Simulated assay, not measured.
Amino acid sequence: MAPLNEDQLENIRNERKIQIMRAAIKVFATHGFKLTKISLIAKEAGISHGLVYHYFKSKEEVLYDSLEWAMELNETRKFLTELSEMAISPVEKLHKFTKFALSSSLSTSSDIFRIIQHLEHTEGVPDHLLEFTKNVGMMYVEFFIPIFIEGQKAGEIIQEDPEVLVGIFLTIISGVMADDPGWWQENMDHKIAIYLRMLTTR
């Protein structure tokens, strides 16, 4: 059997790193930052404990790189772009996003939300990780504020500080995704409509 060339070796290294990061996202989402150990990530990835350290220097580096990787692949970014281009009312956009978020409960999106929730409520998290979560949160806030303002101008959304309304909207969705969104799966459209009545004029 011919030895592997450099490109083949690089592909193997990349695949192994992705294998570790995919496992890390699941483990951090389940156990939180403090309780996650490299050994748990290695077990989830089906590799040896020492091999993780071949790719990452620390637990913090595993988490940061894994979150960056997951956000790049995250289907939410694509959905937000599509949503911004839809010719529908602001309230319909909120409904579509909420349904998308809660329907993605078994995907990486849910795990990212859960990790961010853990980090925001955990002491001793390194500053660069907190900065990352803050930037992710701002991405959503900056996307939704114009939609809320448009809805207020159209008389669809209540007249309160748009940033406060966006905060309430996202905090509730994040809380549901971080907990157990299973209850929302039945009659989802009706339940979302009830939820949005907190923010809308109808």
Rank of each mutant, 00 (worst) to 15 (best):
Ser107Ala: 15
Pro126Ile: 01
His128Ile: 02
Ile194Lys: 04
His121Phe: 13
Ile168Leu: 12
Ser89Trp: 00
Leu73Cys: 07
Glu82Val: 14
Ile172Lys: 00
Arg197Asn: 12
Glu160Pro: 04
Val136Lys: 01
Ser105Gly: 14
Met177Ala: 13
Ile115Lys: 00
Arg197Ser: 09
Met198Ser: 13
Asp161Gly: 14
Gln159Phe: 03
Phe113Val: 01
Leu170Arg: 06
Trp69Asn: 11
Ala70Gln: 09
Pro90Glu: 11
Phe143Ala: 08
Glu72Thr: 05
Phe148Ile: 08
Gly155Lys: 01
Phe100Leu: 07
His95Ile: 12
Trp69Ser: 11
Gln185Ile: 05
Ile172Arg: 00
Ser104Val: 13
Val166Lys: 05
Thr98Lys: 01
Gln159Lys: 05
Ser84Val: 10
Phe113Thr: 02
Phe97Pro: 02
Phe97Gly: 04
Phe169Cys: 06
Ile192Gly: 01
Lys78Gln: 08
Trp184Met: 12
Asp111Arg: 02
Glu68Cys: 10
Asn74Trp: 06
Arg114Ile: 05
Lys191Gly: 00
Glu156Leu: 14
Arg77Glu: 13
Phe100Asp: 07
Ser110Ala: 15
Ser103Pro: 00
Gly182Phe: 04
Ser104Gly: 13
Lys99Phe: 11
Pro90Phe: 12
Trp183Tyr: 13
Ile145Val: 13
Lys99Ala: 14
Ser105Arg: 03
Thr108His: 03
Thr171Cys: 09
Pro126His: 08
Trp69Gln: 12
His95Met: 13
Glu142Ile: 00
Arg197His: 06
Met86His: 03
